[in-house]
Simulated scan of single mutants.
Amino acid sequence: MDHVLYRQEGAVAIITLNRPEQRNILSSDEMQAALLGAIERLANDHVVKVAILTGAGAAFSAGGDIKKIAETAGKTSPPVSRSHYINGIQRIPLAMSRLELPVIAAVNGPAVGVGLDLACMCDIRIAAQSAKFAESFVKIGYVPGDGGAWLLPRVVGLPKALEMSLTGDMIDVDEALTWGLVTKVVPDEQLMDVAMAMASRIASNPGFAVRMTKQLLHKSGAMSLEDLLNFTATAQAIAASSDEHKQAVEAALAALQAKKRRPKEN
C-alpha cells in the first residue's frame, strides 16, 4: 500500500495520507519519505497551481506512533534523538515552506500533534464537522519537535497557541473556527467538494500571480514595508510582462464588454 496517494485533476493536485489503519501517523520513515516525495513532485510541477492535502479514513493525522514512542522512551541519547529529528520529521516543514504554490488542508478528522502542525504548514485549512485539533506534545513530556512552536502562533496568535501547547487539550471545530485555525467548517460528506471548489477558484487565476501572491503574504511578516514594496515591484514587473497576464486582462475586458451589451431588464 502506498503511504501517500497523489492524483491530479487539471491544475489541482490532491495528496492523501494513506495509512488509515494507523490513523495516518507521520512518525514512520516510510510515511515521511512518501510525503516528502509528494512535496518534491509538487515543487517541480508547474502545471499544478494549487494542492489539497487530506487523510484517508477517519483521521487527518493522529501525529506520532505512541507505541513506538513508549518503546524508545528514555533509551535514546540526546545527540541521536536530535539527529533523528533534524534528518527526519523536520524536513517536512522546511519542504512545505519552500513550496511556491498554495496548499489547502482538507481536515477530515482528528489532527493531533504532528498532524495539527502539518495542517498549519498548509496555507488554508477547511475542516469537516468531525475534525478535532490538539497540540498535544506536552501530554507525553515532549515539545513540538516539528516546528509547531513557530507554526501555531502564526495561525492562531501567541495566547491561543500557548493555551493549546501548554494544556495539550483537544479543541473542536467550533473553537477552531472562532480562533482562526480553520476558515470553514462543513459536513463531512461535503469536505472534498468544498476544498475542490476553493482549489478550482484559485487555479482559475494566472499561475505566476497565485504563486507570487502566496510568497508576498508569507514574506510580509519578516520584511520591512520598504523591502516588501521593492520585492513586490520586481514580482509585478515580471507578472506584467507575462502572457498569462495579457490573456487574463483580455478575458476580463471581454467579460466587461459583454456585460455592458447585455440588454437591461424592464
Rank of each mutant, 00 (worst) to 15 (best):
I140F: 02
D169I: 11
N87S: 14
A106N: 06
E175H: 13
P187L: 06
S97I: 10
L166Q: 13
L116D: 01
S77Y: 12
E135W: 08
L191Q: 05
V114L: 15
R82W: 15
Y142F: 13
P93V: 03
E189Q: 12
A106E: 00
S136T: 10
G145E: 01
P144N: 10
D174I: 10
K160I: 10
I104M: 02
E100L: 11
P153V: 09
I202E: 01
S83N: 14
S200T: 15
A131D: 05
M192Y: 01
A128E: 05
L116C: 02
S200H: 15
R91I: 10
H84C: 15
S165H: 08
G148R: 01
Q129K: 15
M164P: 03
S165N: 09
I86W: 12
R154F: 02
Q190T: 12
A199V: 00
A95R: 05
T178L: 13
M121K: 07
R154C: 10
G147R: 06
G145S: 03
I104P: 05
L94W: 13
S77H: 12
A197F: 00
L177W: 07
W179Y: 13
S200F: 10
A203L: 04
L152E: 01
L177R: 05
S83Q: 14
M198P: 09
P78Y: 07
E100A: 13
V80R: 12
L116E: 08
Q190R: 13
L151T: 05
G168H: 04
E100K: 12
Q190Y: 12
M196F: 10
M164K: 05
L162V: 09
I126C: 03
V173H: 01
G141W: 03
C122R: 00
G141Y: 02
V185I: 00
